[in-house]
């Protein structure tokens, strides 16, 4: 059975000046999968996310989403001499969209250190994420010629908040929510952009074991409910091993292992680089 491929990252290298944060990283996410990315601090996990979401244009490599090349780059300009990675010359196009374009295509994300619109209400936080797919323009929006669309956006927002159990807090200022709910709101906001692929950067960071247990169930639920594929970074081993079907391991920007949770747990290189240090 061949699986439908959603995300394919090929030979991505991200070099900042002389620092190679991600080195020749390749991976893929198939439809409906929950895939994990783990690695010690500073391994380059967030940087990999930033390459996929358009925050950085990778120095070299290519990223495809649903079969379409959305990001592609090769070392050029000053980087040509400085480049320390591999596969130079394999790619020759430069496609470097801004993050909003990537989100529009159907990849949404959350951040390692929560980034809510903190002084706006919970409701507005989610409603703002509905802006990108609206057909209105400034004129019709200002003069209320888009009543139907605005109403639909509000209804969808309300429905989403109800599903996420956040409707009680809809008028509260986002920053006043307890930490766990802020994380949940960030996920709700990402879902509001109608993604096909959801990237979660350490969703359980700062949560107690009970909260992260809940989160584990929750991630599975939203995958089924919204027909998503999920790619997540996480330090909580229990969570990663519990819900991820496949796992990639980064160390110093290099992929040192990939496989199912069992394979990863028994991989000597992973134990040495990561689990050995941690436990």
């Amino acid at each position: 059975m061949s699986k439908e491929n959603v995300l394919r990252v090929s030979d991505v290298t991200m070099q900042f000046g002389g620092v190679v944060a991600v080195n020749n990283f390749s991976m893929e996410v198939n439809k409906g999968e929950i895939v994990g990315l783990i690695g010690p601090n500073g391994a380059g996990k967030t940087t990999a996310f930033n390459c996929i979401t358009g925050v950085y244009a990778p120095t070299n490599g290519q990223i495809e989403f649903n079969g379409e090349v959305i990001v592609s780059n090769h070392p050029h300009g000053k980087m040509k001499q400085m480049y320390k990675g591999e596969n130079m010359g394999k790619y020759n196009k430069i496609i470097a969209p801004t993050p909003d374009k990537i989100t529009k295509k159907g990849i949404a994300r959350t951040f390692q250190n929560i980034r809510l619109f903190s002084s706006l209400s919970v409701f507005d936080n989610v409603l703002i994420a509905k802006h990108l797919h609206a057909k209105q323009n400034v004129f019709t929006a200002t003069f209320r010629l888009n009543r139907k669309e605005e109403k639909r956006m509000r209804e969808e927002t309300m429905a989403l908040l109800k599903e996420q159990g956040l409707d009680k807090f809809k008028d509260d200022v986002a920053s006043s929510l307890p930490y766990g709910l802020q994380r949940r709101l960030e996920i709700a906001r990402a879902l509001a952009t109608n993604p096909k692929l959801l990237l979660l950067d350490e969703p359980a960071a700062g949560m107690n074991p009970q909260e992260s247990d809940e989160l584990m169930g929750f991630i599975g639920e939203i995958r089924d409910k919204y027909d998503l594929s999920i790619f997540l970074i996480e330090h909580h081993m229990q969570l990663v091993m519990g819900i991820c079907e496949r796992i990639y391991v980064l160390d110093y920007g290099i992929k040192i292992a990939e496989g199912n949770p069992e394979q990863i747990q028994n991989n000597p290189r992973v134990i040495e680089a990561y689990l050995g240090v941690d436990e």
């Binding site: 925050v55 801004t98 993050p99 951040f111 980034r115 703002i128 797919h133 906001r189 952009t193």
Partner: peptide, 10 residues
Amino acid sequence: EDEIAAEAMG
């Protein structure tokens, strides 16, 4: 509120 988050929201 947050340019990076706004951009990530499309």
